[in-house]
Design a protein around this nucleic acid. Structure first.
Length: 108
DNA sequence: CGTCTGACGATGC
DNA sequence: GGCATCGCCAGAC
């Protein structure tokens, strides 16, 4: 039996993962976008979910705040590593920690 | 079940 | 234009 309610609750974290994995290379998304896409109004939930995440395969470095700033500062490697990754994907930076959001934003 | 806490966002001053 | 405050939701305790 399939409880439809359970389909709606696969775990918030799973939904976030799915959304992040949808982001193609060379593109970035904001927490707010993912939050709205998932139907929640609090972007903190997205960041909160990624914070708990341990999956290295998850391109969380493509997820940034609406200022284009890298929020994953305490992630393994630090911002510098994230910046290098993004640059390698063709992301342009306007600052050492700020992505050119308008240039690479991915619209779901 | 109340309280606290977060990778945020918008608003107000 | 930096800082305070609210909103909002899920998990930990």
């Amino acid at each position: 039996m399939v409880l439809e309610k359970e389909k709606e609750s696969p775990g918030f974290f799973k939904r976030v993962q799915r959304a992040v994995k949808r982001v193609p290379k060379g593109k970035v998304v904001t927490y707010g976008q993912i939050a709205k896409m998932l139907g929640v109004k609090d972007a903190r939930l997205v960041g909160w979910a990624l914070h708990r995440n341990k999956d290295k395969s998850l391109p969380c470095h493509r997820v940034i705040n609406k200022d284009g700033r890298l929020a994953s500062g305490y992630v393994f490697g630090g911002i510098s590593a994230q910046r290098a990754k993004l640059k390698r994907e063709g992301i342009k930076f306007v600052d050492d920690t700020t992505v050119d959001l308008k240039l690479h934003i991915f619209d779901f």
